[in-house]
Design a protein around this nucleic acid. Structure first.
Length: 716
DNA sequence: TGGGAGTGCTTTTTT
DNA sequence: AGCACTCCCA
């Protein structure tokens, strides 16, 4: 037990050993947040205050949940299998599986991932004859999800004009269709679990009495519904131990409400606020920069990171002539760092948007530096995997129209669009699933679709007694999936992945044991939806790590390159257009990025950048000026420009009629305007009296078109 | 049915 | 520029 608490600092110790009270732990970057959370759990168990069943610990990602479980197992000799440790979605899924009847769900209900949801929306839209240009499917998905995340059902949704009326009506249709098919989207898992607890008094009392301690990770990322769910569960006296950092709230765009922290502070936790401000990760200069940046935000709960480590190196700043030049600089630095013994995997290149990775990847590739890119397609999102899973879903739940349509004609079985239209019409009329409507078809479609239904029936019978991995093998073979990919020219990788799916199922069985009386299939499918699997990147390998700033949250590296620090890119212009709230979130993102670095931080920008197929001329990010100058070491202009011949140089008179010079002004030139201040010319147009230039004045005035005849510009 | 051409979009992302 | 998606034709 003393071992448990031995290495904690004073505030950490205080947090870990709090009596049973609601508490908010404000944990700065690198302050030992996860450690405090798991040690708190371990301490509660080790001191016999509660048993494992009385604890609920919730995270946002499966990775975080796994890490917590692993650390806990190392700290206390306890079987964590029965404990409620998991993601919000995972725990809600667990609750709904356990009480599917009370929740009004079929026992084998399937989970729609975002892609499935989008497909469902498109299909429904078509069936309802809804204009998909006026009502873009993605926007409808967002509309539905946003409502669910606010706890609002279609019946309660506010309608203020025809446009919302249409969307609310659609939301109602969507709900009805999900219920017919017996499927839940992600937000539905949460909302339905919440409603179940709210409406079902015995169940609510059961869980309220069972859980004595509720521990929440990354509390700043909770949305309204998640917060309400926690409050409901804690309604019977359980104590909420919430760990979070309002300065690292970077998911506002997907519904996270930092306001939950304030509310929790005001309504729940009273004076039980503990700040973890000692940082064990970064050198002093890096922390000083981070603190200086975040101080420009308003309405913070307030926190100041400090470290016992020395100031360390200055922050290196580089301004490239172009994105290519910037990339070349980064890769040269990395090569020299690696020569000096820094592991490549301890070098990370971060960027605001994924599109920026291309140039850097290209340069790394050219210089033969191994690298890994995070982000992109994940295992369970691959086409061949989704196909195989669709067959499996149909075995468990034939009413799953999304799965039905995905594979009814894959591999091709001569079932064309006409047949499917007829089938959908029939299903609509009979108010039943496509699968069940198949029998009512006539003509050729009756044969082809009938054969497909026969195939599914046959597969279901043949696999009834098989273990899960063998079910998957059998279904992949008999459905023709394997044969299809064997014939395909580039099919080997897909075959490998299907093999991998079989292994994944075997691993799953071993790890989880067979849960649920209906066998492992439904559990495995839920697992596949809830945990889409690893991104391509493999951790720990000797490769430079490339990722977006968002993806870097929670990670740390010896050396961090933060690239593309330009007005409009970081902070992103879309965010800036959202006003102060948008800009402040960008600033938090900047804060997250900076605090990823342990020893050395590079901040780089480019004067011109290829974006959406066009060269853009850029002004350095306003975030530069928020860092005290004495922390910075400017490396600019110590090198010669990257040879222009390596990319076509700007020549006067663009092919599309635009110009790169006009009346003596040229793109890229720095200018000063009496009213707007300093800026850079980013575009030229017209001639004579019509001559205009577009100038980027950065944070102050933004982009402006100026008529040269009137505007008073002076070269800088 | 499948591929080739044409069109439009483009911040961040977990479950 | 690059990618996803749609549409149309052989």
């Amino acid at each position: 037990m003393s071992d448990l608490l031995h290495h904690l600092n004073a505030p950490q110790l205080q947090a870990v050993t709090l009596p049973p009270v609601h508490a908010l732990i404000l944990a700065g970057a690198g302050s030992g947040k996860t450690r405090v959370l798991t040690t708190r759990i371990a301490w509660l168990l080790a001191t016999n205050q509660v048993g494992p069943a009385a604890l609920l610990a919730v995270t946002f990602t499966n990775k975080a949940a796994r890490e917590m479980t692993a650390r806990l197992t190392a700290q206390v000799p306890i079987n964590v299998r029965g404990m409620w440790i998991g993601t919000f979605h995972g725990l809600c899924n667990r609750m709904l599986r356990a009480h599917y009847r009370e929740a009004g769900l079929p026992q084998t209900f399937q989970i729609l991932d975002s892609g499935d949801q989008l497909a469902m929306v498109k299909r429904l839209q078509k069936n309802l004859g809804m204009d998909d240009e006026k009502y873009p499917p993605r926007e409808l998905c967002h509309f539905i999800n946003a409502h669910k995340e606010q706890g609002v059902r279609a019946a309660q949704a506010e309608v203020y004009d025809h446009y919302t009326q249409q969307r609310v009506d659609f939301y109602a249709e969507y709900e009805a269709q999900c219920n017919r098919e017996g499927v839940c989207d992600f937000a539905e898992l949460l909302l339905r679990s919440y409603e179940l607890l709210q409406r079902n008094e015995p169940l609510r009392t059961h869980y309220q009495q069972r859980f004595k301690h509720i521990l929440v990770d990354e509390f700043q990322d909770t949305n309204r519904l998640q917060y309400a769910w926690l409050q409901l569960l804690a309604g019977g006296g359980a104590k909420i131990f919430a760990v979070g950092d309002d300065d690292q709230s970077i998911y506002r765009f997907r519904g996270a409400e930092v306001g939950n922290m304030r509310d929790f502070e005001a309504q729940w936790c009273g004076d039980n606020i503990i700040r973890l401000e000692q940082n064990y990760r970064s050198h002093g200069n890096i922390l000083a920069a981070a603190n200086a940046i975040i101080q420009h935000n308003s309405d913070r709960l307030g926190k100041n990171l400090w470290t016992e480590t020395g100031a360390g190196e200055p922050i290196r700043v580089f301004e490239g002539y172009s994105d290519l030049d910037e990339a070349r600089f980064i890769v040269e630095e990395i090569r020299s760092l690696v020569r000096d013994g820094v592991p490549a995997s301890q070098c990370a290149v971060l960027y605001r948007s994924n599109a920026q990775s291309r140039v850097i990847e290209h340069e790394l590739f050219t210089q033969a530096v191994p690298y890994k890119v995070y982000g992109g397609l994940r295992f369970f999102e691959r086409q061949e995997i989704k196909h195989a899973l669709a067959y499996l879903r149909l075995l468990g739940n034939p009413d799953d129209d999304t799965a039905f349509l995905r594979v009814v004609n894959f591999p091709t079985r001569g079932i064309g669009a006409r047949s499917l239209e007829n089938l959908q019409a029939a299903a609509h009329q009979m108010n039943c699933s496509l699968y069940n409507a198949a029998a009512s078809l006539s003509g050729k479609a009756a044969q082809t679709v009938g054969a497909f239904v026969g195939l599914i029936e046959r597969l279901r019978n043949e696999t009834a007694a098989l273990p899960l991995p063998e079910i998957i093998e059998h279904v992949s073979e008999v459905s023709g999936l394997l044969e299809h990919y064997r014939r395909e020219k580039e099919g080997q990788e897909r075959l490998d992945n299907l093999n991998e799916l079989v292994s994944a199922a075997a691993t799953f069985i071993d790890a989880e044991g067979v849960i649920g009386e209906h066998g492992a299939l439904a559990d495995f499918l839920a697992h596949a939806s809830l945990e889409a699997g690893e991104h391509q990147a493999g951790e720990g390998q000797e490769a430079v790590q490339l990722m977006s700033v968002h993806a870097a949250k929670g990670l740390e590296f010896d050396v961090v390159f933060l690239s593309g620090l330009e007005q409009g890119l970081f902070p992103h212009e879309n965010a800036v257009n959202e006003g102060t709230a948008g800009l402040e979130e960008e600033r938090r993102l900047m804060y997250v990025a900076v605090t990823r670095a342990r020893q050395r931080l590079y901040l780089s920008s480019a004067q011109s950048r290829m974006l959406h197929g066009q060269t853009r001329y850029c002004v350095p990010s306003p975030f530069f000026s928020e860092i005290p100058g004495e922390l910075l070491l400017r490396l600019n202009h110590t090198r010669t420009p990257y040879p222009a011949s390596n990319r076509q140089a700007d020549t006067a008179g663009g092919w599309d009629g635009s110009a790169s010079t006009v009346a003596g002004w040229r793109i890229g030139q720095s200018v000063e305007h009496a009213k707007f201040g300093a800026g850079v010319i980013v575009a030229c147009e017209g001639r004579g009296a019509d001559a205009r230039v577009q100038v980027n004045f950065g944070g102050g005035a933004g982009m402006k078109w100026l008529a040269l005849e009137y505007a008073k510009l002076t070269p800088l």
